[in-house]
Nucleic acid binder design. Structure first.
Length: 154
DNA sequence: GCCAACGTTGGC
DNA sequence: GCCAACGTTGGC
C-alpha cells in the first residue's frame, strides 16, 4: 500500500470541484510528464490514498484526501483534437498517456499550508520541499503521510 | 510577473 | 547521441 500526492491548480480543478462531482469522483486526466505517467501506470493502485495538493494559487498546500477508485487506463483527452491535452503522436492502439479515477475521502477544514509542511520535523525528503518540485504525481512515504495527516486540521 | 529548475524538441 | 533553444511549472 502506497501513498501519493497529486497536484492541481485549484483554478482549473480544486478539491471543491471534486466534491461537486457525482459520487465525488473524477478521472485525473492531463498528466503529460513521463515520470508522473509511469507512477500512474505502474504503481498507483486501487484503494491507495492520495493527498490533494493545491498549487499555483493563494493558499498553497494540502486540501484533503482522496482514494484511488480505478487503476490506470488511457487518458481519452490525448485523442481529442479539441482538447488542450491532445497529443498527435499518440494513438488508441498505442496510447501514450494514462489516468486514474479518484474519489474524495476527506476535505480538511483548513488547508495544510506549504509553509507549515516545510516547518515539520521529518518532512524534508518529500518532493514538495526539495528543489525542482515539479512532479505533479509523487509518492509519499508512510511516515510522511502520518506526520502530514496528524498536522492537518481534519 | 519574475525567474530558477527542469523536461522536451530538433538540428547537426 | 549531444546540446542549445524553447516551453512549462510553480513558488515567491
Amino acid at each position: 500500500m502506497k501513498y501519493w500526492l497529486f497536484k492541481s491548480e485549484p483554478d482549473a480543478f480544486s478539491i471543491d470541484d471534486l466534491a461537486a462531482k457525482p459520487n465525488q469522483q473524477e478521472h485525473w486526466d492531463g498528466i503529460r510528464n513521463y515520470q508522473a505517467r509511469n507512477f500512474l501506470r505502474d504503481e498507483v493502485k486501487l484503494g491507495e490514498q492520495v493527498f490533494f495538493y493545491h498549487s499555483s494559487c493563494k493558499q498553497l498546500g494540502i486540501a484533503g484526501i482522496a482514494e484511488v477508485v480505478k487503476e490506470s487506463y488511457p487518458d481519452h483527452s490525448q485523442f481529442d483534437p479539441e482538447s488542450k491535452y491532445f497529443d498527435p503522436k499518440s494513438s488508441p492502439d498505442n496510447p501514450r498517456w494514462v489516468m486514474v479515477d479518484i474519489q474524495l475521502k476527506e476535505k480538511f477544514s483548513e488547508i495544510l499550508s506549504l509553509q507549515k509542511i516545510k516547518s515539520l520535523a521529518g518532512i524534508n525528503d518529500i518532493g514538495l520541499v526539495k528543489k525542482g518540485h515539479r512532479l505533479s504525481i509523487m509518492p509519499v512515504s508512510e511516515v510522511e503521510w502520518h506526520i502530514l495527516y496528524d498536522n492537518s486540521q481534519h
